[in-house]
Amino acid sequence: MEPLLKEIYDSILEGNASLVTEKTQAALDNGFATSVILNEGMIAAMTEVGRLFEEGEYFVPEMLIGARAMQAGLTVLRPYLVADDVKPIGVVALGTVKGDLHDIGKNLVAMMVEGAGFEVNDLGTDVDPEAFVEAIRKGASVIGLSALLTTTIPMIEKTIMAIDVAGLRDQVKIMVGGAPVTADFAQQIGADGYAPDASQAAKLAKSFVA
Rank of each mutant, 00 (worst) to 15 (best):
A166I: 02
T75Y: 05
L38H: 02
A140F: 13
E57N: 15
E7T: 11
R51N: 14
L38R: 08
A93S: 12
K6S: 14
D164Q: 15
T159K: 04
L77W: 05
D164A: 13
G190L: 05
D184L: 12
A210F: 03
T96G: 01
V109H: 05
Y9R: 09
D170G: 01
V109S: 02
A147S: 14
G178L: 04
M70S: 05
L13F: 07
A162E: 03
A205W: 00
A69P: 03
K23E: 12
E14I: 01
L52W: 11
E14C: 07
V209R: 01
G144E: 11
V113H: 09
N107E: 01
A83P: 07
L74D: 05
E40L: 07
F53Y: 15
R51E: 13
G31R: 00
I143D: 03
M70L: 14
P196M: 07
G177K: 03
D122R: 05
A69D: 01
I160G: 02
G15F: 08
V91E: 05
I160S: 02
K87F: 03
L74T: 13
V127D: 04
G124S: 07
E134M: 10
G99L: 09
L19M: 04
M112E: 02
D100P: 08
G139N: 04
Q71S: 15
D170H: 14
I104N: 11
L5G: 01
Q188G: 09
T125P: 04
T34D: 09
K6A: 15
E55M: 08
L74Q: 11
T152A: 06
T151M: 06
M63R: 08
Y58L: 06
I43G: 06
N16Y: 11
G167I: 10
M42G: 06
L204N: 14
G31M: 04
V60A: 07
S35V: 15
D103P: 09
G144F: 07
Q188E: 15
G50V: 04
G193I: 07
I89A: 13
R68F: 06
E14W: 01
F53I: 12
V97T: 08
F32S: 08
E130I: 15
A205V: 03
D126I: 09
G190V: 11
G41W: 10
M63Q: 14
D170Y: 10
L145C: 11
I153G: 01
P3A: 11
A162T: 04
D10P: 05
A83T: 13
L168S: 12
Q200S: 15
L38G: 04
T96N: 11
A147T: 00
G50D: 08
G167M: 05
D192K: 07
A131L: 13
F32R: 13
L64H: 14
Y194N: 05
R78D: 13
A45M: 01
L77G: 06
A195H: 03
G177C: 10
V91N: 10
P129L: 00
I12M: 11
G73H: 11
A135P: 07
A27Y: 01
T34V: 14
E119D: 14
L74I: 15
V76N: 04
G167L: 11
A110D: 10
K203H: 15
L64D: 12
G15W: 09
R137H: 08
R51K: 15
T150F: 06
F32D: 06
A72Y: 02
M111F: 14
L38N: 10
Y9C: 07
A147E: 03
G105W: 00
A93D: 06
V97E: 02
